[in-house]
Simulated scan of single mutants.
Amino acid sequence: MDQRHHARLGRRQRPRPKTAVLLTLHQNHHGALAADWLNRYHLIWKPIGLPAWLNAPHDAKPRGNIGIGLAWELTREILRDHTSSSFAALAGWSYTPTGSEIAMWDRMDMEKRLRRHGWRPWKNQPDPLRAKPMEDPRVRAERLRRRRLLRERFHITE
C-alpha cells in the first residue's frame, strides 16, 4: 500500500473504447456503418485484419487509416443519432425511420397517454420553489406510536 501513489487512489478509470461493439458493427453491418461514415465524415474506417497483421514482417506492420480509439469516438457520435443506419442495425430495426416519422409516433403515443391518464408533464414535476407539505399531526402521532411499538417489541434502545 505504501508503494502506491496516494493521490491516485479513488480515481475513476477512464472508459475504454468499446471495441467489441465497434468490431461487431464493422463485421456484421459493414454497409450501414460505411454509409453513416461516408455521410457524416466523408471517409470509411478501414481496420487491419488479423491475417494481414500476422503475415506482415515484424518491422513493417500495417496500420489502419484511423486508430480504434478515434474510430470508436466517431462511431459513438453516429450511434447517438437514432436516425442513423448503424443505430437501426444494432437495434435490429427493419428500416431507419425519418425524424418526422419518429415525431409522428411520439405524438400519437403522447395523445394516447393524454386520453388514457390525463397526463400532463408540467403537472407531474414537483415545484422546487414550493415548500414541502407538512405532515398531519394525527398521521405523525400514529407513525410515532407504531415506531415506539416496534422498538419495544424488538428491544431497540436509542
Rank of each mutant, 00 (worst) to 15 (best):
R147T: 09
K18A: 15
W93D: 11
R130F: 08
W45M: 02
H58S: 12
R140C: 02
W53S: 13
K46R: 15
Q27V: 04
R153G: 05
I156P: 03
L79E: 01
R140A: 08
K132L: 13
L79I: 01
F154V: 02
N55T: 07
L150T: 15
R40V: 15
D109K: 08
W122V: 01
I48Y: 00
P57E: 05
H6V: 10
I102L: 14
P57N: 06
R63P: 01
P97N: 06
H29P: 01
E135N: 04
P97K: 07
R107D: 12
M104C: 06
P121W: 09
P121Q: 04
E101G: 06
D81L: 03
A131W: 12
S94E: 15
H42Y: 13
D127N: 07
A60M: 10
R8K: 15
I48A: 03
R120S: 09
K123M: 04
P97D: 06
P128T: 01
V21E: 11
N124A: 04
E152I: 07
A56S: 14
G92M: 03
E142K: 14
A56E: 04
G99L: 06
V21I: 14
A91K: 09
L22F: 02
R11D: 04
K132G: 08
T96V: 07
H58A: 11
D136P: 00
D127K: 03
W122H: 05
I102C: 13
G10R: 05
I48E: 03
D59W: 08
M134E: 10
W105H: 11
H117I: 15
H58W: 05
K132H: 15
W105S: 10
H29K: 01
H42L: 10
M1I: 11
W93H: 13
A7G: 08
K123V: 12
R145T: 03
P97I: 03
D36Q: 04
G118H: 12
L149W: 12
R63S: 10
K112R: 14
E152S: 15
I48R: 04
G31M: 08
K112W: 05
I44N: 02
A89G: 01
R146H: 09
G10S: 00
W53L: 15
T75S: 07
W119H: 09
L9D: 08
A88Y: 06
D136Q: 06
H5S: 15
H155A: 09
R12W: 04
P128H: 03
R130D: 07
I66A: 01
D127E: 00
A103R: 08
R130N: 10
R11H: 03
W119K: 13
H42E: 14
I78V: 11
L79G: 00
R12P: 05
L70T: 07
E77V: 02
L129T: 09
I68D: 06
H26K: 12
I66L: 08
Y41G: 00
G118W: 13
L33N: 02
H30R: 09
I68V: 11
